[in-house]
Amino acid sequence: MSDTTKYNVLFVDDEQRILTSLRSIFRREYNVFTALGGKEALEILANNTINVIVSDQRMPNMLGNELLAQVHKLYPQTMRLLLTGFMDKQAIIQTINEGEIYRFINKPWSNESIQAVIKEAAEASQIDIGFSPQQAPTPANQNSATIEGAGDQAKAPLPQPQKKAISDHATLIMGSSQSLRNQIRQVCKQEAIAVYSTQSIRQAVNAIVARPSIGVLVIELLSDTDEVIHTISLLKQKRPELITVVLADETDAEVAVSLINSGQVFRYLSKPLELLQLQKIIKAGFERHSAIKNNINSQVRFKVQKPTNKITAGLKELFTSFGLLKKQT
């Protein structure tokens, strides 16, 4: 049944008819696998190399986000997409932060767009992710690594070359909260990462264009969510290796979907954060940044789609002035 020239796609849903429908759409171009639940899906993943997994969120026994988090841990190469009927905020945020998913697909889907998304995902899955799954942050070994690292730093100053290598890194903060800026400064100081602090989109874009060393962008989402999403989307198009961490007072499901689909954000978290948590995220962000930079092809894995909302005139002008957006004729 399986054709080695075709990509392997796995659909997971508790409703057989959904699976039938999806199979009929993809059966010609792909080897389609279907599972009625998370457990079955993991069995299939264990026995087959799956390029793309599309899971429903609401399933009995194992929720979509739980499944995708496991897949991320066990099979990071597999591109992960979440099929979601209606907004379930908590699950969506968890899928971003734990599942590092490629796209959210809304039910009901349009055949054309789902085909396009799966095609992109399948192609991207071929490209080496550039980092081993062991390096990917898993709760168990991440903890020990951090503690060890912190211990080393405390005991002796970092060797010169390593320090130099790290000092190539810079973090850009966009936001107005003093406490957050201080937190990030503290973390980056420990990690010997340069910090640039900006207050507006213009300043931030200016800094990113001027300084290629900036690897991680921490954005405090206050207002003008659309503008921020557009900015992230455009920056990600131009600089796919740029890692974005978005922080908000309160996370929002719809914003989360846009941030993933149009911005491929690395993390979307609600404030306040603990220092240790922030440190882990920034470290992981730079690891990912280096991986993408060193393996330029893997950028495809983090391709973004255009935001659905219309870009504002002011923002368009701003991006055009920086050469991020082509002048429209």
């Binding site: 009929s24 759409i25 009927g85 209606f86």
Partner: peptide, 24 residues
């Protein structure tokens, strides 16, 4: 309403897909 939306959304999802596929 959320429950019902989901209940309607699931058949709507595959009906929509199916109709598209049949059309194709």
């Amino acid at each position: 309403v959320a429950g019902i939306a989901h209940e309607i959304n699931t058949p709507l999802g595959y009906i929509n897909g199916n109709v598209n596929t049949v059309q194709t």
